[in-house]
């Protein structure tokens, strides 16, 4: 599978997962499970490239990292609104 096809496939998986009211953040492993025909390292490289292009974003707890679609689900500041400046 060439890289562009793989990237397209990753976005489709993400949209499908997020669309059905499901998960907005998924692990690299979940992507690998959904696209078994691709090599895990290629999936990793493609997903990281999508982040650089702004089509995916990282969500990190510090100990693990998940991928999400920008603006979907838990937001930039983990649902925290920055207080207004007085």
């Amino acid at each position: 599978m060439d890289k562009e096809t793989l990237k397209q496939k990753i976005l489709e998986v993400m949209q499908k997962k997020a669309g059905s009211g499901g998960k907005s953040k998924i692990y690299l492993k979940d992507l690998q499970r959904e696209i078994p025909e691709a090599n895990p390292r290629d999936i990793k490289n493609a997903a990281n490239e999508l982040v650089r292009e702004g089509k995916l974003e990282y969500f990190s707890t510090g100990s693990t990292v998940m991928y999400g679609l920008p603006g979907v689900g838990m937001g930039l500041e983990a649902g925290v609104e920055k207080p207004k400046e007085e």
């Binding site: 990281n48 982040v51 650089r52 974003e57 990282y58 969500f59 990190s60 707890t61 510090g62 990292v65 999400g68 838990m74 937001g75 930039l76 500041e77 983990a78 925290v80 207080p83």
Partner: peptide, 25 residues
């Protein structure tokens, strides 16, 4: 402390760990 978030620097998926207070007031 709440944890988790999208914070980071461009192109990196690590190195920054998001932390927020749940007592902002």
């Amino acid at each position: 402390w709440k944890h988790g978030g999208i914070v980071g620097v461009f192109g990196y998926g690590g190195g920054v760990i998001g932390r927020y207070s749940d007592q902002q007031d």
